[in-house]
């Protein structure tokens, strides 16, 4: 897998792919972006925490109209992963309100999005219905 890299810094690949958040050491607020300080308490010390890969769909939309180059329709969702809110696409499901439901249990999955000229594959994450 040395020829694969995660699509974003907060995705960890390997045998057990999962998301990693920066957690504020003083107030426990969690963030996925590079941080200067905490938006909750202005603290500046963070630790890495693994985010559960199982979650529940708290909201979704089916985007049918997007910027050029983006495949539509796709399902964009807000997932509650054990108390940490995560944004991602719901994949491996028909992009229709008959198949995507509020409260639906989902789990994290990964998939390649393409290779660069060096043959390095970028791996993105999404969520799929959990049985």
């Amino acid at each position: 897998m040395s020829n694969a890299i995660p699509f974003v810094n907060y995705l960890t690949l390997g045998d057990d792919p999962h998301l990693v958040a920066h957690e504020c050491k003083s107030c426990s607020a969690r963030f996925f972006d590079r941080r200067n300080a905490c938006a909750g308490c202005s603290g500046t010390e963070f630790q890495s925490v693994d985010i559960p890969t199982q979650g529940e769909v708290r909201s979704f939309t089916i985007v049918a109209f997007a910027a050029p180059g983006i495949e539509v329709p796709f399902v964009s969702a807000i997932i509650d992963c054990g108390g940490t809110t995560v944004r991602g696409n719901i994949v491996n499901v028909e992009a229709s309100p008959d198949h995507v439901k509020l409260g639906m249990p989902v789990k994290l999955t990964t998939f390649p999005i393409g290779k660069d000229e060096q043959g390095v594959e970028a791996i993105n994450f999404g969520f799929e219905p959990a049985a």
Binding site: T61, V63, A67, I70, R87, N89
Partner: peptide, 8 residues
């Protein structure tokens, strides 16, 4: 945008 949720 479009790969990890939507920005639209």
């Amino acid at each position: 945008d479009g790969r990890i949720g939507t920005d639209t």
